[in-house]
Computed example of a mutant assay.
Amino acid sequence: MTEAARREDLEARSGSATALLRTVVGAVLRPIGGWMSAAGAVALMSALDVPAATARSSLARLCARGVLVREPRDGVAGYALDPAAVPMLERGDLRIFGQRTAADADRWCLVSFSFPEHQRSRRHQLRTRLAALGCGTVADGLWIGPASLEPELAESVREFGAELFVGARPAAELRAGLSRWYDLDGIRAVHETFLDRFAPAASRLPADPRDAFALWVRVLDEWRVIPYRDPGLPAAGLPDDWPGAASRALFARLRDALQEPAVGYAARSAAGGHPLPGPTVESVASPMRE
């Protein structure tokens, strides 16, 4: 696994302590200056019901993965965002917060590859990467994805020596095609799970900033995998009762309500005895940007 792949960890699941910490890093560490004290990091994870020992293990894990670096300031132990991780987080911004639903007439990307048997591990790695990026399977060595995935796919095919074709127009009827290429039942399930879990929260938003921080991190941690499972599949190819639009609307509503108080709470808590600059209006508006 390359250093970049280890850092990005596209297969990471939501809900674990390390996943929650990764979400904290992506969601609030940049807006508050890119540094948090060790005590402040443990305090932020405590708001997510993560014990201190588990939080420290997760911090060590993200340092080993090249996401954080240990960086004391004025004698205070702490952690800073590794500059090499910024491009990864910015790519995540585009996927997580972008509006990428493909139009019915949009073209598609095709990725073609063939590996000899002695390179079957690389074949498996590429299949795993393509699935994680949101591609579907046409055939064993032929994968498909919306044209919006081109920049991410181009990077992967260069790494693995595959072929990328951009501008394909499926000859098959789109609804029949998507049902073959993608696990639509699985994608529906992640949308519906998000709606079931967080729709009630939208009607009784927390007033306490600590609770707003905890809810926002959990919302974002669960949402962040959905745009990779559903890369903006066109409506014409989906069932009429598809829940994707509803889950996107719910995420946007919760973001509007929770993001600013969550970043404000993080700025106060992450200091842990070391003064931090307050978040700017611009950074709170776009928390996943430097």
Rank of each mutant, 00 (worst) to 15 (best):
V86G: 01
D93T: 10
R7I: 08
V111D: 02
W143K: 05
R6D: 10
A139G: 01
L81Q: 05
G15S: 11
A214R: 00
A262G: 05
R197G: 10
I187T: 01
P151I: 13
T280D: 05
P243H: 07
V86F: 03
L110E: 06
Y265S: 03
R123I: 00
H274L: 12
E222R: 12
V28I: 15
G264T: 02
E163K: 13
V166N: 07
V263K: 01
L20F: 00
A64M: 09
G34Y: 06
L254T: 01
A38Q: 14
L164K: 09
V190L: 13
G272R: 03
G161N: 11
D185K: 14
F97A: 04
F251Y: 13
E173H: 08
S46R: 15
P31M: 09
A64P: 00
D185A: 15
V50W: 00
D196A: 15
M1W: 06
L20A: 07
R253F: 02
I226T: 01
R253C: 05
A154G: 12
R70A: 15
D196Y: 01
I32E: 00
S57A: 15
G15Y: 08
P151T: 12
A285F: 06
A105T: 02
P170M: 10
P200M: 10
R204G: 14
A131K: 15
P287Q: 09
L81P: 00
V86E: 04
S58I: 05
E282W: 11
R30K: 10
S114M: 08
R70D: 11
E90D: 15
W181D: 06
V76D: 07
V190I: 11
E155S: 10
A235G: 11
P72R: 08
A207V: 05
Q119H: 14
R13S: 13
R210Y: 01
A131H: 14
A262T: 05
C63R: 11
P116G: 04
R6K: 10
P206D: 12
L21I: 06
A171C: 06
A246P: 02
R95P: 03
P206S: 12
P234S: 11
A189S: 13
P206Q: 09
L174F: 04
L276T: 02
V138R: 13
R210K: 12
E155F: 01
A168R: 04
L149K: 01
